[in-house]
Amino acid sequence: MTELLLLFVGSALVNNFLLTRFLGICPFLGVTRELKAGVSMGIAVTSVMVASVLVLWPLYNLALAPLGLGFLQNMLFILVIAALVQFLEMVIKRAFPSLYTAFGIYLPLITTNCAILGLALLMVGNEYTFLQSLVFAVGSGAGVTLAMGMMAAIREELEFADVPQSLQGPGIALITAGIMALSFMGFAGLGS
């Protein structure tokens, strides 16, 4: 139990996907203009992460590994992730049309979000059990949602700040991201 808790904290804070591993940066800058869209995107990424672990762990450990087809992992993972994102897109389009418009291109772009593929490859590389993989996915997703939410909150405040003209927009966003990443280094050494 302690081990799982450590894994959760480790994936959410210490090895935060966005701010420490620098995976899946495009929605981090793309949809963090407002808090609601940012957090929703984090939740969307989390659900794709959990869903891909639910599908990919059995697929890899019960089919690919026994058949000696480990070399297929990248191709197969991309295929499965793409299909899962399509599912998610349909669900969101049906259930939350306004969110669907807010996400715009970034929703189908989860397909090529390296955080998802990175999660799957780390899961295989670290030889996690099914339970560990699930905790890892939820933790990583929570970390992504946390970082997205923080970034969006800061950027909402920045709208009212007197930013020098040359730094407005992406410039100040990248500086904010850098300082956030720096502060997340404070978690290094916590847990594993």
């Binding site: 697929l59 690919l64 058949l67 087809l69 297929l72 191709m75 197969l76 295929l79 499965v80 299909a83």
Partner: peptide, 13 residues
């Protein structure tokens, strides 16, 4: 087997 696996997963989705 590789082709069959990819094909099966692809067809399913």
């Amino acid at each position: 087997t590789a082709t069959a696996t990819m094909g099966a997963v692809g067809a399913f989705f």
